[in-house]
């Protein structure tokens, strides 16, 4: 399946990383990406407040959104770090049954690599924008892997 864009947000809703992996992913300005990310963060907070579970933190927030042209998968870590990824809903490349789990796995793998490549860099300051070439390279490998699995 075609992974399009990947976003990482800090716990205050600020965009700290965004990459596009597909030609079909819309090209926006950096400011637009930041707006998108913080709007999505607000929606996550809203969803958690609306959740019937009394403790807002028990609700994982939005896990998946389906639109006619793309799908979005999201996760929030217990520490507040948030990640979401968009991918194709095009029938030719669309995820088949079981793909939901696969994209959840993608996010899990991305999260693990975030802890290894980003947080273990002593010069990275937490919650600041991420500029890490090794992580970029590793993410491309993960994206390739999931693109292959889907096709």
């Amino acid at each position: 399946m075609g992974v399009q864009s990947f976003f990482v947000l800090n716990k205050a809703g600020g965009l700290i990383m965004q990459r596009s992996y597909s030609d079909r992913a819309p090209r926006l300005t950096q400011n637009d990406y930041i707006h998108l990310a913080s709007t999505f963060h607000s929606m996550q907070l809203l969803v958690r407040e609306l959740s019937p579970v009394s403790n807002a933190r028990e609700c994982g927030g939005i896990a998946r959104m389906e639109a006619t042209t793309f799908r979005l998968y999201a996760m929030i870590a217990a520490t507040g770090v948030e990640m979401f990824v968009t991918c194709d809903a095009n029938p030719a490349t669309a995820p088949a049954a079981g793909a939901h789990d696969r994209m959840a796995d993608f996010l899990k793998e991305a999260y693990i690599s975030y802890t290894d490549y980003v947080l273990k860099n002593p010069f990275y300051e937490i919650d600041m924008p991420i500029k890490s070439e090794p992580w970029d390279a590793h993410l491309i490998k993960i994206v390739d892997k999931y693109n292959r699995v889907g096709s």
């Binding site: 217990a78 520490t79 693990i112 975030y114």
Partner: peptide, 9 residues
């Protein structure tokens, strides 16, 4: 930093 590592793994 380890908190995230912990939850990831």
């Amino acid at each position: 930093r380890l908190a995230d590592d912990f939850f990831a793994k």
